[in-house]
Every structure is written in C-alpha cells, then in structure tokens.
C-alpha cells in the first residue's frame, strides 16, 4: 500500500499553487470500512485485501472513451491483432457507472476538461486512469496552444502514463498490464488532488475575470478556472 510509504516531496521544488495542491490529501483508495472497524490489518483482512486486489487487477472494464488521435490506436488495441481482452481488460462499457478504468486517449482542451472531470466523477471507486499519449502528459505537441490543458493530470489523477504520439498498441497493452500489476500489488495512485476542480461560480475568488462574467454565469453554475500562466 502506498500509504505505508509516505509520498516524498521535495519542498523546495513546490513553486506554484498548482503543484502544491497536487501533493496534498493523497489517500488510500483501498481503505475499507471493515478495516477501519478492525483498526489494524489482521491476517484475514490482508489476505482478503490481496484477493480483492488480484480480482481488481485481473478483471477490468474499460470506459469506451475516445478523444483524439490516440483513440484510433486504442481501437486497434481492442481489436483483432492486439486483443487487449486477452488480459481480461478488453470489455469497453459505454456507461461510466460500469467502468473501472478510463483510458484518456488524447488532448484535453478547455471546453472538454470540465466534461472529462464529470465523467471521471461518475465512475465508481476504485477507479483507475491510464493516460495515453504525450498530450495527457504535458499537452504534447499542442502544449503551446492557447486552449490546451497541459496534461490530463491537471484535471484528474493518472495512474499510468503511456508516452508516445501516439503510443503503439503494444505500448498501451504494456501500460494496461502494468496497471493491472500495480493494482494486484495494491499500489494506489500517488496523486489524487487536482488543481482545476469543478466549483460553483460563486465560490471563485472575486477578481477581474469573475467580475466580467458575473452577469453571464449563474451563481451556482459549475465552472472550471484555468490559470494558464500558472500551469507547468
């Protein structure tokens, strides 16, 4: 469990609010009420944990989720030649309620980020995310774009990054299998807090931008605020 090893950060390198908020509040996703009740981790529960982790790692339902270029390679990964289903993780579900893993295959832009956050929030815990391609790491070739979120991790936590533009299907298979391995070993995602959260408009700090938009947006409408200057 990752909670056994505290997440080590180099304080000096935390320079921005954006990065700062990433480091806080990482919790243990596998914590069960049962274990809370027992207080510690008795033998039977650790065995049960192990079994559960094995189950979670062995069978995963993917979210049928296509964004950009990488989704084409993702389709190939599901299809005949590469057949992700061999590893027990090749059944895409259209509804986020029934999915365990979300492969984020492409560039996230300002208009889509709140929607992706919403889809992620709709998935039941424990949920895992595979970031596919350079765009989900940093914005990739489009990082300079005025509209591009600099990596999916700005919005949702990512467990496995598969680099490439786009990664080959083999790479995605490797990434997914690595994820399965990590889940089976009980390693949770190290990052859980996101700087770009959905929040109600009235909760935003009143600055020039908020003042300008005040007559267009309802107080209780959900919004996402982008601090492009502050992004990595």
């Amino acid at each position: 469990m990752s909670s056994d090893q505290p997440f080590i950060t180099d304080e000096s390198r935390v320079v921005t609010q954006t990065r700062d908020s990433r480091m806080e509040g990482q919790g243990d996703r596998f914590n069960s009420r049962l274990r809370e009740a027992f207080g510690s981790s008795p033998f039977i529960l650790t065995k049960f944990d192990k079994f559960l982790n094995w189950c979670r790692g062995s069978s995963m339902f993917m979210l049928q989720f296509g964004i950009a270029c990488c989704s084409i390679e993702m389709m190939h990964t599901y299809a005949v030649k590469h057949d992700l289903d061999r590893f027990g993780s090749g059944v895409p579900r259209a509804s986020p309620r029934q999915a365990d893993v979300m492969i984020v295959p492409g560039t996230i832009v300002s208009k889509f980020a709140p929607r992706m956050k919403r889809v992620y929030d709709q998935m039941p815990e424990p949920k895992f995310v595979v970031g596919m391609g350079s765009c989900t790491i940093s914005g990739g070739p489009f990082q300079e774009g005025y509209n591009v979120i600099k990596g999916a991790e700005e919005v949702i936590p990512i467990d496995i990054h598969v680099p490439g533009c786009p990664p080959r299907p083999e790479a995605l298979v490797y990434g997914v299998v690595k994820l399965q391995e990590r889940i089976a070993n009980g390693e949770a995602a190290p990052v859980t807090v996101k700087p770009y959260e959905l929040e109600e408009f009235s909760d935003l700090e009143r600055d020039e931008l908020v003042e300008t938009l005040a007559d267009q947006i309802d107080e209780d409408e959900l919004v996402m605020r982008y601090n492009f200057a502050d992004s990595p």
Binding site: S110, K111, A113, P114, R115, R118, Y146, N147, L198, F201, L204, D207, L209, V210, T212, L213, Q216, I217, E221, L222, V223, M224, R225, Y226, N227, F228, A229
Partner: peptide, 25 residues
C-alpha cells in the same frame, strides 16, 4: 470552438495567452 465564456479572440494580435479563463459546465 471556444467556451462561451472565453475572454478575448485568440488569433487576434493583442491576445494574451496567459490570461486566466473560466469554462462552464
């Protein structure tokens, strides 16, 4: 192409790429 609440027109000459923006849901 951009969210309705976007500020400025990005391909115009005086656009500031670093300004904060808000997108609604």
């Amino acid at each position: 192409l951009l969210p309705e609440t976007w500020q400025g027109h990005p391909l115009s000459m005086d656009y500031d790429k670093d300004r904060p923006q808000i997108a609604t849901l």
